[in-house]
Amino acid sequence: MSTMHLQPVATANTVEEQRARWERKRSRTARELVETEQRYLEQLDLVITYFVTILKAKGTLLPAERAAIFGPLESIHLTSQTLLHHLERGCLGQGLDSFCRELELYGHYAENLEPARKALQEQVKKNKAFRRFKKLQESRPEFLGLQLEDLLPLPLQRLHQYKHLLRDLMENTSPDCAEFQQLARAVKSVSKMSHWVRDTARSHENSLQLLRVQKLLKGRKVKVLAPGRWYVREGWLMVVPAKGEEVKRKMFFLFSDILIATKPCHPLHLLNSDKFACQAVYPLSQCTVDKVFGHTQGQGGLLSLCFPHKTLLLMSSNQEDINHWHLSLTTAIRQLSARPTNSGS
């Protein structure tokens, strides 16, 4: 009888303890959000106060040159001020609603970041007055040794912090709480923008890799730059001939849809001494990969790549290297086969 009376009390205590834990975590995260927003705003203040505002007044850069470097940073700074104002007053929901209405600013800033870096490098290189001004401002004690280049990525770094902090807040907020729906909307919006920014950065990095490999290849017969193509890896491998010929060392470039086999151009060639000549392009859509064992002595391994009209045997003396190649090839082939096929391709 007594046990039956005690059980609901014990359950109630457990529920209250869980709620108390949630509330402690929520309070801790809310405090962290405010404190990190204050530090973020202080760093944005450095750029706005000591660069943007003074450059406007001095005219060291033309308006178009200034916009190319800083993009919508002033608007992002204003948005952060507004958010912090609401957070410090305890108006989380109102602050998040206001912030999310301005979230596209972070998307525009992400699109502009790489061009901004190039524009900054160009001004440092060609504009003596700006170069001296930049060095003087960065020497201020408030900058703590940071350069303008270190501060420009701050908004995108902060965006990823928002995603984690807001998610933690939502997970420790009761669905019955008045701010829960506002938090849920904010988490969804910020996560979507954060993923878009990350994908934009990945796409840009991939474009640079494709362009780099294109420049490494002699001539323009092989077009590395192609829509939907992703760079995977590159490296030296030994090609084992089918008949008793000499093993040949070649440089391979692996992409999401093709494997390119190359050999280095002659070191004394006037124009192409640092380039590679393409010898074959293998479509991964028609490829199967297998590890071949027992054909190498000691360390290393052998891969067999089978195409409709050719089998390629690739060897490395490094076991880890051959394992990585095997994984990269099988992953690329699997992902390629999972893609929707176009009848016209």
Rank of each mutant, 00 (worst) to 15 (best):
L83N: 05
T200I: 00
K250Q: 07
H204R: 15
V124L: 13
L166S: 03
S139W: 09
Q214P: 01
S189Q: 12
N318W: 03
A280D: 11
L144H: 14
A64W: 11
K188W: 04
R26Q: 15
G300S: 08
A20S: 14
S345W: 13
K125W: 09
F253A: 06
G301Y: 04
R26G: 10
E32G: 02
K188P: 00
N323W: 06
L148I: 04
D176H: 10
R101V: 01
I76H: 09
Q319S: 15
K250C: 01
W325L: 01
H5P: 00
K25A: 12
L237W: 09
L268E: 06
F252M: 07
D45M: 00
Q157F: 01
T262K: 05
E104I: 01
K126G: 00
L151T: 05
L154S: 08
L270S: 15
S304Q: 13
H164M: 12
W196I: 01
Y162V: 09
G145P: 00
L165F: 11
F252L: 11
E104L: 03
S337R: 15
R39W: 06
E142W: 02
F253D: 01
Q81W: 12
S343C: 08
I333E: 10
A30G: 09
R24K: 13
L216V: 02
C91N: 15
Y282K: 13
F252E: 00
S194D: 11
L62G: 13
L152W: 10
C278G: 13
F276P: 10
K275W: 03
W22S: 12
E35N: 07
L62F: 11
F276K: 10
N206K: 10
F133D: 00
K58P: 01
S256R: 09
L210N: 08
E245V: 02
T14I: 05
L87N: 06
A10V: 07
Q299Y: 05
S2F: 03
E114M: 01
L33N: 02
Y282G: 11
C177R: 14
E138W: 05
S256T: 04
N318R: 12
F130Y: 11
I48N: 11
A119C: 03
Y162F: 15
D274E: 13
G107K: 02
K126E: 06
S337A: 13
L254A: 02
A30R: 12
A110V: 04
L183E: 13
L120D: 07
P340Q: 14
W230Q: 10
L165I: 06
L113F: 07
L84D: 08
D321T: 12
Q279E: 12
K163E: 14
H86M: 05
Y40M: 03
L73A: 04
L336R: 04
